[in-house]
């Protein structure tokens, strides 16, 4: 944009980023209050429909009345979670500021806003929130709201503090259509993995609770404490939903790997060289392939495969933060001068 000062645009963009972070903090608080109050609301709702007490399914698992409701929501007795609604409204508002900030940064730089560490975080977190919001239209995933908004606050705020750099012209190796495609698809995959991660964490918590309930039902051990978990889908439902996000993420990650190789072949004259970043992209791909396999392996379905999904996402975060900043390699694009 000739005539506009890129520095000024970037400053406005930064202001919008911090506004978004502040709103994400509020969303986090609202979602956290929601989780804290959910079990009470669920109890009240349950009192109204006593008939829907704990149901023991034929398979021997213990399923909560509300927990048994499919993740797509719409259970008749579903209590109205006011705080969750507030959280969703806030995270959507934060998203708008965040989107504006990202677009403005792109305009200031006159290129796609994902060309250095700060911008990866900006766009990557934007996609995490976007995928969450889109998923909300199909599934009631608001129990992940505090995790998603918390992640957004930490990653976006942290990246802005630690990695923000002025807009400078792109270095030659980054001038490629593959920057646009490869990095964007990688961020999209990350966003899907993030949701799968959240669901897998909930699945583990839920599975632990279900085990305790089963024990309590067969002995006279004390039942587990009330918690928001009783308002969540059961562990199986959480697992299959996590799987659905993870396989879409896996497809995008596969594409990231291939696109990255094509780019590497253009830039460095070899499509694969076990550069640190390539190693980690490969490790993550193999981990998720392992996760998909585990889901189909007897004895690994359930808790063990959930751990693989969690480890996979930890590797994704590690790849983005530690590997980018501290590991030596050809992918020197953090934009930070060490």
């Amino acid at each position: 944009m000739p005539g506009t000062d890129p520095l000024l645009l970037d400053e406005i963009s930064l202001l919008l980023v911090w506004t978004a972070v502040a709103i994400y903090v509020l969303a986090f608080i609202a979602y956290a209050i929601d989780l804290a109050r959910r079990s009470d609301l669920a109890i009240k709702a349950k009192d109204e429909v006593v008939a829907r007490e704990l149901v023991t399914a034929g398979g021997g698992g213990v399923i909560d009345a509300s927990g048994g409701a499919s993740a797509s929501g719409g259970s008749v007795t579903k209590p109205r979670y006011l705080w969750a609604r507030m959280g969703t409204a806030l995270i959507a508002l934060g998203f708008l500021f965040h989107l504006a900030a990202t677009v403005l940064r792109g305009i200031a730089a006159e290129r796609v806003p994902w060309s250095n560490m700060y911008e990866f975080a900006l766009t990557g977190v934007l996609l995490v929130v976007a995928v969450y919001l889109v998923a909300l239209t199909r599934f009631d995933l608001r129990f992940l709201g505090s995790l998603i908004s918390g992640l957004a606050v930490v990653l976006l705020g942290g990246a802005t503090l630690a990695f923000h750099v002025e807009v400078v012209p792109l270095a030659d190796p980054l001038k490629s259509v593959w920057l646009v495609i490869h990095v964007f698809v990688a961020s999209l995959a990350t966003a899907l993995f993030a949701l799968a991660f959240g669901l897998s964490v909930m699945q583990l918590l839920q599975a632990r609770r279900e085990r305790k309930l089963a024990i309590a039902a067969s002995t006279d051990a004390a039942p587990p404490r009330r918690s928001f978990l009783q308002t969540l889908p059961n562990a199986d439902a959480l697992e299959s939903l996590a799987y659905r996000f993870a396989i879409v993420g896996f497809i995008f990650w596969t594409f990231t790997l291939i696109a990255g190789s094509i780019w590497a072949n253009d830039a460095w004259g070899r499509f694969w060289g076990f550069d640190t970043k390539e190693v980690w992209t490969f490790v993550i791909w193999v981990l998720y392939a392992g996760y998909i396999h585990a889901r189909a392996t007897r004895g690994w379905r359930g808790t063990r495969s959930a751990w693989l999904s969690i480890i996979g996402f930890v590797a994704v975060l590690f790849n983005f933060t530690i590997v980018n900043v501290f590991f030596k390699g050809l992918h020197a694009y953090s934009g930070l001068t060490s």
Binding site: G273, D275, V286, G290, H293, A296, R298, W300
Partner: peptide, 28 residues
């Protein structure tokens, strides 16, 4: 078996990591 495939996949992921911690002759 599926279990062997899974274990080998996980081993492959773990075995690839040291190459990013120690410089490699092929890359550096």
């Amino acid at each position: 078996s599926m279990r062997t495939a899974l274990v080998l996949l996980l081993l492959l992921a773990i075995a690839a990591v040291p190459g990013s911690l120690v410089p490699q002759r092929s890359a550096d």
